[in-house]
């Protein structure tokens, strides 16, 4: 079951196409990585989903229904360009943002208290935002995004500017929210966090979707049958099916990257290796999302 389906979404700005025929499906309760370099069109797609702007063509369907103003209550959005009212007190600010999302005063008060306690900010409820540290302000922004318990959480570069401690804290919260049933769209151009968090990804480049699927499938499809081997001895007499891409010496051990030209099984390579050298470690090199990203964006394989 998909919580969100975008089909053939196109958006033109005066001079350029921001999105060109983009379709994505986001499974319920997944953490979905929306990847792409800066200016690829991620934020445009997110703004369309949030009904801040409208698509020229194409449909967005949430929970089987066409996008409707009531859906703003289903979505929690943490934009890349984000901030708070500096002169407003933390508690009042959260109350205002919660009410805008349709929460009643009583319910909002209960949840604000809960979240401030959870993130250790209870003492700051009466303080103005300008008195908060940057990290605290970011936690407040996160709370504001999740207060109305959205089914769909859209986080645009959520970790930019976070210190590692807070980033981990927020990561844990994201996982917890997913456990409770939320779906997370996670837009970023930083691949390390994608590797850890995402189940599914879509890659957008130059206004077009280049690639999508589960993280596992994508990684597998980009496997190049490369193996990293460390060994003792001289590596010669290897079958021509295998190609040594690079080698280096390290503490008396040699390390080589070997590719199986026609996708031969690792066992065959091992058999060959054992006959010539003493194998200390043998590992298949799976491409990181970062490698795939760079490969695609720089116009390599597509």
């Amino acid at each position: 079951m998909n919580i969100l389906e975008a089909s053939n979404v196109t958006k033109n700005y005066a001079a350029h196409k921001a999105l060109n025929d983009v379709s994505i499906s986001i499974p319920k309760q997944s953490i979905f990585g929306l990847l792409g370099p800066n200016g690829a069109g991620k934020t445009t797609l997110i703004r369309i989903i949030n009904q801040i702007i409208m698509a020229d063509e194409g449909d967005i369907v949430i929970n089987g229904e066409k996008l409707h103003p009531k859906h703003i209550q289903v979505i929690g959005y943490l934009p890349e360009e984000r901030g708070l009212y500096k002169k407003m007190k933390v508690g009042e600010q959260l109350m205002y943002l919660a009410q805008l999302k349709g929460l009643s005063t009583g319910e909002a008060r209960k949840r604000i208290k809960h979240w401030l306690e959870k993130l250790g900010l209870t003492d700051w409820a009466g303080k103005k935002v300008e008195d908060l540290s940057k990290g605290m302000a970011q936690k407040i922004q996160f709370i504001a995004t999740v207060l109305h318990e959205p089914e769909l959480l859209i986080l645009d570069e959520p970790f930019s500017g976070f210190d590692p401690v807070n980033a981990n804290l927020i990561k844990d919260e994201i996982f917890e929210l997913r456990e409770k049933g939320a779906t997370v769209i996670f837009s970023t151009h930083r691949m390390e966090s994608v590797e850890q968090l995402c189940d599914d990804i879509a890659l957008i480049n130059k206004s077009q979707k280049i690639l999508d699927g589960t993280k596992k499938d994508i990684k597998n499809s980009f496997k190049a049958h490369k193996y990293s081997v460390s060994y003792k001895g001289e590596l010669n007499g290897l079958s021509t099916m295998f190609n040594v891409l690079e080698s280096q010496q390290n503490d008396g051990l040699s390390e080589s990257l070997i590719q199986a030209r026609n996708g031969e099984s690792p066992n065959e390579l091992l058999k060959d290796l054992i006959q010539t050298v003493e194998v200390h470690s043998f590992v298949e090199v799976v491409p990181s999302i970062n490698d795939i990203f760079i490969e695609i964006v720089e116009g390599g394989k597509s």
Binding site: N50, I52, I72, Y77, L78, P79
Partner: peptide, 13 residues
């Protein structure tokens, strides 16, 4: 203060 995008995700501009 960059709060406007948060607000317009809840309120029409």
């Amino acid at each position: 203060s960059r709060i406007v995008e948060v607000i317009v995700s809840s309120v029409r501009p």
